[in-house]
């Protein structure tokens, strides 16, 4: 019995409950990030006396960390592909690589935040700064939760309990991970690349 057939053997639509759960959750998350992005956009020109977004964003740096996150989607999908073949070892390597790239992205975000802080953009500086840190912070928390899930998978894999039979679990974590990535694709373009107001 293949993993697919095991997971779906008795639902009305033939679709796995768990996967549907994740997709429903991601549909819901669209509204969450939409709200945060809107809250940022209406506030991006309200920088009060603090730094303006156009003055402070470091596009080359953010481009690199965006690229890192984008490539973590590739390693994630390779991890899934490996476990679907029953290749436990490569699955583990790609999961670790994904978690590593995710951590690199988070590290970049921490660096970005501390730099901004040094340049006078604190959380309470202006409506712009509050909205910026809240939006990117929420995204960062999502990435961190994803890393925790990936590491749980890795531990599970070392204990020998992550096999081809439950590749769907990897797939579901992957869906979450890719979603976090597409949210960043949106944020990177709309918040960073589209020219921001300068002071």
């Amino acid at each position: 019995m293949s993993s697919e057939a095991h997971a779906v053997h008795d639902t009305t639509t033939g679709i796995s409950n768990n996967k549907l759960l994740m997709w429903a959750f991601l549909g819901s998350e669209c509204l969450l990030f939409g709200g945060l992005i809107s809250a940022y956009l209406v506030n991006r020109s309200r920088f009060h006396t603090g730094p303006a977004p156009g003055d402070i964003f470091d596009i080359p740096f953010t481009s690199v960390s965006s690229f890192v996150l984008l490539m973590s989607s590739l390693t994630m999908v390779l991890a899934l592909s490996a476990i679907q073949r029953g290749d436990v070892r490569n699955n583990r390597i790609w999961l670790l690589a994904t978690a590593l790239l995710g951590s690199l992205f988070i590290g970049g975000q921490v660096y970005e935040f501390t730099t901004f802080l040094r340049e006078g953009l604190g959380y309470t500086t202006s409506p712009f700064s509050s909205a910026f840190f809240t939006l990117t912070g929420f995204h960062g928390v999502h990435v961190s939760v994803g890393i925790v899930m990936l590491m749980s998978l890795v531990i599970s894999s070392y204990r020998g309990t992550l096999t081809k039979k439950n590749s769907e679990t990897v797939e579901i974590v992957g869906l979450y991970w890719h979603f976090v990535d597409v949210v960043w694709i949106f944020i990177f373009t709309v918040i960073y690349l589209v020219p921001s107001p300068t002071s």
């Binding site: 899930m149 749980s152 599970s156 309990t161 992550l162 974590v173």
Partner: peptide, 8 residues
Amino acid sequence: SPAGQEAG
């Protein structure tokens, strides 16, 4: 939550 562990 760490969905991975359920499978284990």
